[in-house]
Design a protein around this nucleic acid. Structure first.
Lengths: 133, 133
DNA sequence: TGACAAATGCAACCGAGTTGCATTAGAATG
DNA sequence: CATTCTAATGCAACTCGGTTGCATTTGTCA
């Protein structure tokens, strides 16, 4: 049985915005962007709506190394690489190694239902090239 | 030039405790354990001392999916698997795939100085076996 | 149209982590 | 030992992401 959603302005705007935005956004950023588009929403509302969307499997949630949780439309399993300089976030896909690794770990340590959280960090091309100087 | 450390009770106790404890500990847990051992320390002090230890390369710091930063004595590069039920944290080593992966990513996306954050989550043997029932 | 539950807003709160400032106390020097 | 310099500590106040309880609004459905 699917989770029940009522059709409301905020509700709709959230999903639409997440569809447009490339990459994960924090609740704060989401609220600002909604505000800019004329949709005022309280942070409590957004957190609750996002939670529902996550439960419904429409949105994916991940916590980054800066301690902030960000949300994005669910797509094929992938990971992110975050620029340590400009904070830009890009999608990347990682080979099948990790699945193998997960199974190996599960077997060896007696754990089950194993999943993982993986993010890469680096310096992106823009921040590498000599903009100044 | 090495970072300068003065020999103080707290300072020493922190390192000693991190040596004894198996796995990463949060500042809060650290403070409680120190307190139980008769060493009272203010949280500000601990955060600052831990920061110094991290800078000095003696302690490793990582942020977990619950949003809490935990600290542990630095050893060979490894990862953790966290029980989703009892929160127990175990060390695991992951194959060399990730290094390969990092290099591949760096090349493909034009990023450099790439590093990663990886944690596994699952249900540990204890929490799997029928304790109740 | 009426009723019920979902959605919203608000205020207050929580907990991790930070900052500025005054005080305490190692360590080095004469 | 006394002096001096600065690391280390404690404290209060704050920031910020996120949560909770409660009252109010509003969508949906009979």
């Amino acid at each position: 049985m699917a989770i029940f959603f009522r059709k409301t302005t905020i509700n709709q705007s959230v999903l639409r915005l997440l569809d447009q935005v490339p990459g994960p956004v924090s609740e704060t950023a989401l609220r600002q962007q909604l505000g800019a588009a004329g949709v005022m929403a309280h942070k409590t509302t957004l957190y609750r709506q996002l939670e529902k969307l996550v439960e419904a499997g429409k949105v994916e949630q991940s916590r980054f190394a800066d301690g902030v949780t960000r949300y994005e439309r669910k797509k094929a399993h992938h990971h992110h690489i975050i620029c340590r300089s400009c904070q830009r976030i890009e999608d990347i896909e990682v080979g099948a190694h990790l699945q193998t690794e997960e199974r190996r770990i599960a077997r060896r340590a007696g754990f089950h239902s194993v999943s993982h959280a993986l993010e890469f960090y680096g310096i992106c091309p823009n921040c590498t090239s000599p903009l100044s100087a």
